[in-house]
Simulated scan of single mutants.
Amino acid sequence: MKSEHEIQSEIMLALSRADCTIIRTNVGKVRTETGRIFIAGPPKGWPDLTGFRHRDGRLILIEVKNEKGRLRPEQKHFAEFIQRFPVIYGVCRSADDAVKLLEANKCT
C-alpha cells in the first residue's frame, strides 16, 4: 500500500502536467526560544494540497488519503463547508483520482 506522502507526490506531478500549480500544505509545531509553542500552517481540516488551474484560475483543494484512509471529523466539516463555493475540492486516493476530479470540473 502506498503512503499518503507518495500519493501526494504523484498527484502533484500529474496536476502540474495538467497545467495546474499545486503545493503541499505544510503544518508544523515548534517551541520558540522563550518556550512558547508556535503552530504554523492552516487550520485543522485544511486539505493536503492547495493550488489553482491556470486556464481559469479555479482554486483546487485536495485531501489525500491512501486506500484505507478516512476523513477526520474536522476534514468532514471542511468538506461540507467548502462545497458551497465554486472551488475544485475532492478526496483523492491516486493521481488518476485527481485528474478525474479536474475533468469533472470543466472550465466555466
Rank of each mutant, 00 (worst) to 15 (best):
L101S: 07
L13F: 12
D56Y: 07
I88H: 02
D97H: 10
P86H: 12
R58A: 10
E63K: 13
T32Q: 08
K29G: 00
G69F: 12
G57L: 10
R93C: 07
R84M: 10
A79R: 15
D56E: 08
K68P: 04
C92M: 07
L15K: 02
R24K: 15
C20S: 02
D19W: 01
R58L: 05
F38E: 00
G57F: 13
Q83S: 14
R72K: 14
I60G: 03
W46F: 15
Q83E: 10
Q83I: 06
K100A: 11
S16F: 14
Q83C: 09
A104T: 09
E4M: 10
A98I: 05
P42G: 08
C20V: 01
R84H: 13
G51V: 02
L15R: 02
S9M: 15
I62M: 13
E80I: 05
P86Q: 08
S9C: 14
C92R: 04
G51H: 03
R24M: 06
G28L: 06
L102T: 05
G45L: 03
M1A: 13
F52D: 04
K29E: 00
R24L: 09
E6G: 07
A98Y: 01
K44H: 07
R58V: 02
R55W: 10
I37Y: 01
T25S: 09
A40V: 03
G57S: 10
G35E: 02
E67K: 15
V99Y: 01
D97Q: 08
H5F: 14
D56S: 09
E33M: 11
K100M: 11
D96A: 15
K106F: 09
I88S: 06
D19Y: 00
P47G: 07
F81L: 12
P47E: 03
I22K: 04
R31N: 00
I39N: 05
K29M: 04
K76W: 07
K100R: 15
K76D: 00
G45I: 02
M12C: 06
T50Q: 13
K44G: 00
D97A: 11
